[in-house]
């Protein structure tokens, strides 16, 4: 049975309340720690909300290299495993020198898309 509000809902309201109502009143010596708490809550919130979407973006980026269909129906653990398997394959090919001479343009595009998907969760401000 799913409680209401769920974990995601609780985290969302906790993070926004902390930032709006607590952070401005924190004493200077605790401000760094308080900012870290706000940051951690917001990363967790984005991860709960956006992990599957990030997984699909990564799958799409890897599909650029492998010409496979980005499987839109995958979710949760199945999606994670599929992304991990393709990333592992790519690591092996990179280490074997498959991109030393050619294909670096496509590779760089794919790597950037993969990192952007992860940055969207850990630090969207750095997406620039």
């Amino acid at each position: 049975m799913r409680a209401n509000p769920d974990a995601r809902g609780l985290l969302e309201i906790a993070a926004s309340t902390f930032r709006a109502d607590v952070l401005p009143h924190v004493a200077p010596e605790a401000r760094f720690a308080a900012l870290m708490v706000a940051n951690a809550l917001e990363i967790a919130e984005r991860e709960l909300k956006g992990l599957d979407a990030a997984g699909h973006s990564m799958l799409g980026a890897l599909a650029l290299l492998y010409g496979e269909d980005a499987d839109d129906v995958l979710s949760g653990d199945d999606l994670r495993k599929r992304v991990e398997a393709l990333q592992h394959r790519l690591c092996i090919e990179i280490a074997a020198g498959d991109f030393d001479q050619e294909g670096q343009g496509v590779l760089m595009d794919a790597l950037e898309a993969i990192v952007e998907a992860r940055l969207g969760i850990s630090n969207p401000k750095a997406l620039g």
Partner: peptide, 12 residues
């Protein structure tokens, strides 16, 4: 280095 392709590319 075998799981993260960005690290793998940096090392290569």
């Amino acid at each position: 280095g075998r799981r993260d392709p960005v690290i793998a590319w940096g090392l290569r």
